[in-house]
């Protein structure tokens, strides 16, 4: 399923003194199979954008029977696979099964008495009448995919787990329905370094085998550089850049002027550049080390 979005604009609390333009003419295409990153500082519209993808925020034209656009308004296009999100006839419920969404701090949404029940929640909603054995198996698979041992945690209360474990249970609760696209809003925020690494490794395992496409929203540039095939930079509701990390993080000055960070490797490259050493790498640690070693070999 490809995501195609053109001229998307969204205003919160339209017509009130609190009105905020969260998205301003956003055009973005995410192809099937991508590991797509979305960067931008707080309030740049990235969360609003991803909430459009599974219809949690709906376009006005999909809510009203006869939608009259305002004067000069460019009608947006928003398609996720075969779902046309501008249409009123779209089955948003089945769309949500195809597009899994993991919110920020998803562990705060856990509610059931046991891990098993919590993970099964989405499954029971989307696949009505699913048998007990099937549920059990799907829950076990999802927990295993998230690096948890079903035998150990399935009967535990989700509130007795550690922070990192809770988060993985929450992710399991979303992937259990086998969505084609998995969207995660700051999946590693607030975790310790080990927890962060585990979550990112988990996403790598899921990508391709479990969910075809992964979209992550992140503040952590190292995360983006190490994992993403492409990344879009949001600023004040607009997409200012959309490039693979290799090209994106070369535009250091622009990123810094937007108040964003750059990956550690990019900072080191910059420091080396100031001393006259040019290194052209894709800003992952492995590639950087390989290029540095190659350079040393050449100089000898």
């Amino acid at each position: 399923m490809n995501i195609v979005c053109e001229h998307l604009t969204y205003v919160y609390d339209k017509g009130s003194p609190f009105a905020v333009k969260a998205l301003d003419d956003v055009s973005l295409t995410i192809a099937e199979g991508e590991f797509f990153g979305i960067i931008g500082h707080t309030g740049s519209g990235k969360s609003t954008f991803v909430q459009h993808l599974n219809g949690l925020i709906r376009l006005p034209s999909s809510k009203k029977k006869r939608y009259k656009p305002e004067k000069g308004e460019i009608l947006p296009t928003l398609k996720v696979g075969e779902y046309d999100l501008t249409s009123r006839k779209t089955d948003f419920y089945s769309l949500r099964k195809k597009v899994g969404m993991v919110f920020q701090y998803p562990e705060y949404q856990l509610f059931a008495e046991t891990v098993k029940d919590d993970v099964a929640f989405g499954l029971k909603n989307f696949s009505k009448g699913i048998s007990k054995e099937e549920t059990e198996r799907a829950v076990g698979d999802a927990l295993t995919a998230c690096g948890l041992d079903p035998k150990e945690v399935a009967e535990m209360s989700p509130f007795d787990l550690s922070g990192g474990q809770k988060r993985r249970v929450a992710i399991a609760g979303v992937i259990v329905t086998r969505p084609e696209i998995l969207v995660l809003d700051e999946p590693a925020a607030g975790l310790d370094p080990l927890g962060k690494r585990e979550v990112m490794a988990l996403l790598h395992r899921l990508h391709g085998s479990w969910c075809k496409t992964i979209v992550i929203v992140s503040h952590d540039m190292d995360e983006i550089a190490e994992n993403c095939t492409r990344a879009a930079v949001f600023s004040e509701g607009k997409v200012v850049m959309c490039l693979p990390p290799r090209q994106l993080f070369k535009r250091t000055d622009e990123l810094l002027s937007l108040g964003l960070d750059i990956p550690l490797v990019a900072k080191i490259c910059l420091a080396l550049q100031r001393r006259g050493i040019e290194i052209d790498c894709d800003f992952t640690a492995d590639d950087f080390v390989a290029k540095v070693l190659a350079l040393r070999r050449d100089r000898r």
Partner: peptide, 30 residues
């Protein structure tokens, strides 16, 4: 929280009153 549970297929709008009350539990506890 409501959005997060909706993303997992929770349905707060349909069903009779008992179903709807039951549907609130996943919001209420968190």
């Amino acid at each position: 929280i409501k959005n997060a549970q909706k993303a997992r297929g929770a349905d707060f709008e349909s069903g009779n009153i008992f179903k709807r009350i039951k549907a609130i539990v996943p919001i209420l506890i968190p």
